Simulated assay, not measured.
Amino acid sequence: MSCVLLSSLSYEGNYGGVENSLRYLAKSYKNKSKNVIILSSSSTSKKFERVSVEDDITLVRFRRTFSINKMVNIILFPLVIIDLIISLFIIKRNYVIEKSICRNQFVCFFVNLFFRRVNVYVAPGFSHRQSSKTNMTLNSPTLAIRQKVHMLFDFAALRLSASVYVFSENMKEQSEELVSMFSFRKNFTKVKITKPGVDKMVFYPVDLEERDKIRSKLELPSDKIVLLCVGRCVKAKGFDYALQLLVKNKSTHLIIVGDGPELETIKNHAKTINISDQVTFVGACFNTAEYYQASDYFIMSSVYEPLGQTILEAISCGLPVIAFRNNVMTATYEIMGDMGVIYIDKPVDIDIHKVSLCLSNCNDIKYQDLKMQALARSYLFEWDYLADELLS
């Protein structure tokens, strides 16, 4: 039985960019009459099952934790590797893998031991940038060690996989940086650029009447220009910059959907600059579509972002994007070009305030034009396109 193997460290089926990509790729391959296997660690909310079937997709799990005690789990980490290898043996013995697609560098190393010739690594990011002190809020004394280990697995995934895909030019540049750290090779042509998709059955625009109903349901102001940020609360997301959009514009309201180590710091910053009444903190949320549909603009405030799946979700809901043009490492221009986007020159207060005062409400002709441009850009991103490219 010929199958497509999709693998990552975790798969809950409804959370996070990497998990979403596995779910949508699986759906696309099922529509193409392919048999699909998903390899990931055990679900945090269910009893461990090595092999199960959900939505006609075979799930093969390995144990990632063996205790509720973190220190015990660190000591028992070798058992995670053994359990992962057991799962790979089961897959190797029972299925013919036509193509393997992996989205986690650690899992990728072991997948390559079994399926290197057909394994494609679709990189979610690279640790030397993503987990740097400037982008993450981590004060652990083991941070440097963990980052080095992650970098080694990043390099192994690049070096050993049959092919490698990334989602942006800046990710390709990062892959070249990483290779130069571990290898004398000057040319590394294995890495190709592609783009993910977005589920337009979930993320789609609504009319003003429906928007107002959603705002009422979510207890959001009906008479404000509503701005939206979505993502994990870490330094790289730049949510403190998003707050500055409200300082000199009392007609705006900001929604922040996400949780993380910086959340309390962001809340305190909102109090310090006297805009707490203009911000709604939602926390972690699995059904973000309504927040996109309730908003007027999406803010890509990140100073570092490998791609930005949230931009794709936002423009599929017809939201114009506000983003930085310079002094950041993001893929916003690759996604948007000059269509459906308002650029802030640099992440400094004077530039942010300048743009804030120029924001139009939903009835303005300029706003409607931006909205249609954003929606038009969303049609360039389809999961089926990615699924076909990874099989080719």
Rank of each mutant, 00 (worst) to 15 (best):
D338S: 09
E290I: 06
D351S: 11
G318M: 05
E334C: 04
Y343M: 07
I335P: 02
S276Y: 11
I315P: 12
E290W: 12
D349N: 05
K346V: 09
Q368N: 14
Y343R: 07
G283S: 10
I275D: 04
S356D: 06
S316L: 04
K346N: 10
Y297I: 02
E290Q: 15
M339W: 03
L319K: 09
Q368C: 08
K346M: 09
L357C: 07
F298W: 02
Y297C: 01
G308Q: 04
A323I: 07
Y343Q: 03
V341A: 01
A289I: 01
A284T: 13
H353A: 04
D351N: 14
Q309G: 09
I335S: 03
L319Y: 04
V282W: 01
V348I: 15
I365V: 14
K366E: 12
C358W: 10
F281E: 14
C358E: 15
N363S: 12
Q368T: 07
I350Y: 10
C317N: 05
D369Q: 15
D338F: 01
K346E: 14
E290S: 14
A314P: 14
E305W: 11
V279W: 03
K346Q: 13
V279R: 04
S302H: 02
V328F: 08
S360Y: 10
C358M: 15
E290F: 13
M329C: 08
E334M: 03
P320W: 01
T288F: 11
C358L: 15
C285R: 04
D277C: 12
Q309P: 08
I365T: 08
F286I: 05
I322D: 01
Y333A: 00
C317E: 04
G340N: 02
I335T: 05
D369C: 11
M339T: 15
G340L: 06
T280W: 10
I275R: 06
M339K: 15
A294V: 05
I299T: 11
Y304V: 11
K371V: 08
I335Y: 06
L312W: 12
D345W: 09
Y333C: 08
V355G: 09
C285F: 11
G340E: 04
N327P: 00
A289Q: 09
K346P: 05
M339G: 03
Q278E: 05
R325Q: 14
L375D: 13
I322L: 03
I342N: 10
Y304A: 11
C362P: 01
Q373M: 00
I299P: 05
N327G: 00
N287M: 07
T280A: 12
Y367M: 12
S360M: 10
I315Q: 08
C362W: 01
A289R: 01
M300E: 05
